[in-house]
Computed example of a mutant assay.
Amino acid sequence: MSAPDLPDHAVVDLLGLVALGELLAFERMAVDARLAPDLRRRAALGEMAAAEIGNYRRLADRLAALGVLPDDAMAPYVGALQAYHDSTEPRDWAEAVTKAYVGDAIADDFIREIATALAEPDRQLVLDVLHDSSYADFAVAEIRAAVEADPRVADRLSMWARRLVGEALSQAGRVATAERGAFTALIAQGGQVDVQGLFRRLTEAHSRRLAEAGLNN
């Protein structure tokens, strides 16, 4: 079944949101890599940061092909996404990888649901730039190692994860209910008129991920 036709500005809105997410993720990972306890882990997060900026470039090029400046497409979402990162600065390596695991996964779930409304090639582009399983596998291994080394860390990281999901859902709510007709239409076209239902699914997926990492919901 083909995706419904959408106005170009709705497509631009979503591509702008995802592009900004990739750009900020690059900046965050590049900084957080300095928290790594050794060079191997530092390099691993650095490689992930490089992938993020590569994804940003693909999205920026697509926006340019649509005749839109990437800066203009991203501008409406700077407040919400920057607020999330500013309020969730990790204090150490364990918090940094937990943020990558929890925050990136929630963002991916949110975008994946909305992207169903896009036509090709934009739908596949958006799906292609979402994080693959290697990100989660790396983060889960690091979280479990931290808990194994000091079981008391589990409670701290569980509380941190709850804070992350609360902040992420709060900012996602700002995006989903923003007074931008094109983006609201895109959510509706994707079948996600019930924003509360969407957030419920995001929260359920988050709970499953915490269990996989050995943390408490």
Rank of each mutant, 00 (worst) to 15 (best):
M1N: 09
P4S: 04
H9D: 14
V12C: 08
V12N: 05
G16Q: 05
A19K: 01
L20K: 03
E22C: 06
L24C: 06
A25N: 07
E27D: 11
M29P: 02
M29D: 08
D32I: 11
A33K: 12
D38S: 01
A43T: 11
A43H: 12
A44L: 09
L45M: 15
E47F: 10
M48T: 10
G54C: 12
N55D: 14
Y56H: 14
R58V: 14
A65L: 07
G67P: 13
V68S: 01
A73P: 08
M74G: 11
Y77P: 05
G79F: 09
R91H: 15
A96K: 07
A100W: 08
V102N: 01
A105S: 13
A105M: 06
A107E: 12
R112E: 02
A115M: 10
A115L: 10
A117H: 04
A117F: 09
L118H: 06
A119V: 13
E120V: 09
E120N: 12
E120C: 10
P121H: 03
D122P: 06
R123D: 00
L125V: 09
L125C: 03
D132N: 14
A136K: 12
D137K: 15
V140C: 10
V140H: 04
R144Y: 11
A146H: 04
A149T: 09
D150K: 14
D155F: 05
D155G: 10
L157M: 07
L157T: 01
R163P: 08
L169C: 13
S170E: 13
Q171R: 15
G173W: 05
A182V: 07
A182Y: 14
A185G: 13
A188F: 04
G190N: 02
D194H: 00
Q196G: 12
L198M: 02
F199E: 00
F199N: 01
R200L: 03
R200D: 00
L202Q: 05
T203R: 06
T203S: 11
E212L: 13
G214Q: 00
L215R: 03
